[in-house]
Computed example of a mutant assay.
Amino acid sequence: MPLDETARGVYVIAPTPFHEDGRIDLASTDRMTDFFLQEAGADGMTILGVMGEAPKLDAAESLDITQRIIRRAGKAGIIVGVSAPGFAAMRALARGAMEAGAAGVMIAPPSTLRTDDQIVTYFKQAVEAIGADIPWVLQDYPLLFTVQMTPGVIRRIVQELPSCVMLKHEDWPGLEKISALRGFQADGSMRPISILCGNGGLFLDFETERGADGAMTGYAFPDMLAELVKLSRAGERDRAHDLFDAHLPLIRYEQQFGVGLAVRKYVLRRRGVIASDAQRKPGSTLGAKARAEVEYLLSRLARHDARAKLAPAG
């Protein structure tokens, strides 16, 4: 089904599994898709995002892995990151993904944008390029892209571009932005949109209380994120916060710039989701000390969450 403003729950940001020699690991890709959607309880996946190492894939690889995951996912919604330096490449991947059965695409702003008008104009041109019939996600990640989108600018984009149906909210601090956007919706000055949050789930405990519909991030325990969102939706506030608090040390460790993906892939490998924690070069790796720290965090987490009770590291 095409993505729309009613989307909620957890859309896992998926890494791209690689073999040690840099080839895409297709068997791990299948196993990862099954784990996220069938075991972890995710509502969908977002692929070819920042943590998917999308810039390291060529056009053919990007479309091939998109088609493979969509076929494997069945009815689950798959969102495809199509951000690119030029609109021709963005259009080709967006149209190819939708033809393969994607639910929608995600677009991030280039780091050169500075003024409000520049931001709005860019997304208008992006929609012209991919087609107004494709539902898309606005990625707001100023810490990485250095583009500051105020609530007012986001409202302009949503109002002027009807095919924008979701915000991937990754501002930091960003709780007030969620409240402002939901306020616009309440007073009728902005049409409803879905809001899913990133930042590794670092603020998800309160983001859901501010009106977010769930998470779009890639923490190594997406099953915890799905449980947290369900608890929050059911009004089980203390249980949701207790679960979040138990995972927070590992969430924080995984959120480190530069090595966060290495941590995430390491834990996913330890959980048996992917066969290797390799990244395609250039990429980061964990040293022996860092691996020991992650193992220590997992052992502490296992006292509260059995999902972290893993076999000894080999």
Score class of each variant (00 low, 15 high):
residue 194 S to H: 02
residue 156 R to E: 06
residue 201 G to H: 04
residue 162 P to Y: 13
residue 108 A to N: 14
residue 143 L to M: 11
residue 158 V to P: 03
residue 172 W to N: 08
residue 122 Y to K: 13
residue 136 W to Q: 07
residue 208 T to L: 15
residue 140 D to K: 15
residue 106 M to I: 01
residue 190 M to D: 02
residue 145 F to T: 15
residue 193 I to W: 01
residue 220 A to R: 03
residue 203 F to V: 12
residue 116 D to F: 14
residue 220 A to I: 05
residue 199 N to I: 09
residue 107 I to L: 07
residue 139 Q to L: 02
residue 112 T to E: 12
residue 176 E to G: 10
residue 193 I to R: 02
residue 135 P to V: 14
residue 113 L to T: 05
residue 164 C to E: 03
residue 181 L to A: 01
residue 141 Y to V: 15
residue 120 V to P: 08
residue 125 Q to M: 13
residue 100 A to K: 06
residue 196 L to A: 01
residue 112 T to G: 07
residue 204 L to A: 07
residue 173 P to Y: 09
residue 99 E to S: 02
residue 105 V to I: 10
residue 170 E to G: 01
residue 201 G to V: 10
residue 213 D to Y: 12
residue 148 Q to C: 09
residue 160 E to P: 14
residue 126 A to V: 04
residue 170 E to A: 08
residue 102 A to I: 02
residue 194 S to G: 02
residue 208 T to A: 07
residue 135 P to G: 04
residue 170 E to D: 00
residue 152 G to R: 05
residue 182 R to M: 00
residue 194 S to A: 12
residue 168 K to E: 05
residue 180 A to E: 13
residue 199 N to V: 07
residue 186 A to L: 10
residue 189 S to Q: 06
residue 108 A to E: 08
residue 131 G to V: 06
residue 213 D to N: 06
residue 207 E to C: 11
residue 130 I to P: 01
residue 206 F to I: 15
residue 193 I to H: 07
residue 189 S to L: 07
residue 203 F to N: 05
residue 191 R to L: 09
residue 135 P to S: 07
residue 164 C to G: 11
residue 134 I to M: 13
residue 195 I to N: 05
residue 132 A to S: 13
residue 102 A to N: 07
residue 101 G to D: 08
residue 181 L to K: 00
residue 126 A to E: 06
residue 137 V to M: 10
residue 187 D to T: 14
residue 144 L to D: 08
residue 115 T to Y: 13
residue 202 L to D: 04
residue 215 A to F: 01
residue 121 T to P: 10
residue 173 P to T: 09
residue 208 T to R: 11
residue 160 E to F: 05
residue 219 Y to Q: 08
residue 213 D to W: 01
residue 123 F to L: 14
residue 211 G to P: 13
residue 176 E to V: 10
residue 211 G to F: 14
residue 201 G to N: 00
residue 133 D to F: 10
residue 190 M to C: 09
residue 128 E to A: 04
residue 99 E to K: 09
residue 166 M to Y: 08
residue 198 G to K: 10
residue 98 M to K: 13
residue 158 V to W: 04
residue 133 D to W: 13
residue 153 V to W: 00
residue 187 D to A: 05
residue 170 E to L: 05
residue 162 P to M: 12
residue 160 E to I: 13
residue 181 L to S: 00
residue 136 W to S: 05
residue 122 Y to E: 15
residue 147 V to R: 03
residue 125 Q to T: 13
